[in-house]
Design a protein around this nucleic acid. Structure first.
Lengths: 248, 248
DNA sequence: AAGTGGTCTAGACCACAGG
DNA sequence: CTGTGGTCTAGACCACTTC
């Protein structure tokens, strides 16, 4: 009893069958799945194979098991989908090591109503604003223009754009002992402004990738906001997601 | 050979032994661990027990394994505390539930050289190509135009664009028992083509967000490629990353 | 061709939960 | 007590990598 048809291992086929049946409602939430012995008979497989299959369902959070009781359905859909494979937060800057940050301007500004939405701040706070161009050794043209806002508590930050190539949020962590626990990122397509077009050496109103990152501490406060505008042909953003149940 | 002493299952004891030896430097990073057969002899255990033990090391990220090669040490310490997770809510299709897919065309096409790079296929393969517009109930204009390529093995896929609102890769998983284990995503800014401009009801050459996703199975093969082009003002892509504080 | 890990079988004994 | 899942053995064949 073997087959060329499906190249997937047997236990994954069984797992998929059970997943489908759970999603189809054949077993409702709280119900017991058939016992391992039953499944062995149903599928004509050994207990090892059946257990490997059910392990997948456990890892997906669809069922839980208890010795002496059985396998109980806990959810119809996998609780979590995909996980970003990132070793370091710094992978968000996909080029940090190879590039330099040219500071164009650095000044403190008082927040007005047009900015308080973006920074989630209240008007009147005095933040640090840094404008910069990111360059790579290879090309004469900047990769992007960046607009960085830093919370008043950290506006004395030093060594921004130094030779260290370190992302700014790591400087804040190191110089002030603040810990970034969350990063929110939004990506849009935009047309560059004429000022940006001059800085970047592209045509006015050409397409660009706009990336805005909010760096947030453990109390939920915005510590830094960085907006980067990348000319379309000079940058693309790549990421990789993997199913977060273990591949064994 | 039994014992009252250690109440832990045998495979956990073996795992702990191996962890200790790796941390003690008995096996350096990059080194191969003894083969399963060797470990069976060393510990006087069956292959099942040894494999259960090594699985723990894999899950901790201490080693990885490759058939035909062996088990290689990758780290001395479990990777924990500095890993970032993607919220499952920020799932890849950030809108699937609220929107519908209008199929514009569906046809099989033979891969030529211009496509084999994108699809990581060889010329001559016959893939399914679907062109579609994604619409929301709210707006008269489409959110994006999509170009979807599906591997020959799954080109008989059914119910694409049906009322289910299910992402296409989940249809492949359900209808063929194939499991997607990895998604690679690339985001660019582009100018829409004139054909796209007509479909989307925007001005020709206006800026758009270009998102290309490769859906990959466990053998590393490309199962589906989806390219979506979103007019700048109709869509932005958001993600959230958090530090992972999970004990090991 | 030899050796690796990946899959799978057909048994076995155990601790535990339930009637 | 019976039946459950948890652990474990001793085999086997396979796909793959390496020589």
């Amino acid at each position: 009893m073997t087959t060329l048809l499906n190249q997937q291992p047997r236990y994954l086929q069984l797992a998929q069958t059970l997943i489908n049946e759970i999603q189809a409602g054949k077993y409702g939430i709280g119900d017991l799945l058939p016992t391992e012995y039953d499944l062995c008979e149903q599928f004509g497989a050994s207990r090892f194979t059946v257990r490997e299959a059910v392990k997948r369902l456990v890892q997906m959070g669809l069922v839980d098991r208890q010795a002496g009781v059985g396998t109980r359905v806990r959810a119809q859909q996998a609780v979590s989908g995909y996980q970003q494979v990132m070793q370091q937060l710094g992978d968000l800057q996909q080029y940090t090591a190879d590039t330099e940050l040219d500071i164009v301007s650095r000044q403190t500004i008082e927040i007005d109503e047009s900015l308080c939405g973006l920074l989630r701040a209240t008007p009147g706070e005095t933040w640090l604003r840094i404008e910069a161009l990111r360059r790579s050794g290879d090309s004469p043209y900047p990769i992007c223009v960046s607009e960085i806002y830093i919370h008043p508590a950290f506006r004395t930050i030093e060594n921004v754009g130094s030779a260290t190539h370190a992302p700014i949020y790591t400087l804040i962590e190191r110089q002030f002992g603040e810990q970034i626990t969350e990063v929110q990122q939004e990506i849009r397509a935009v047309n560059v402004t004429s000022a940006q077009a001059r800085q970047l050496n592209v045509k006015a109103r050409s397409a660009a990738l706009w990336i805005c990152r909010h760096y947030i501490n453990r109390r939920g406060e915005v510590v830094e906001v960085a907006i980067s505008t990348h000319p379309a042909e000079r940058f693309s953003y790549s990421e990789k997601f993997q199913r977060d149940w273990r591949p064994v």
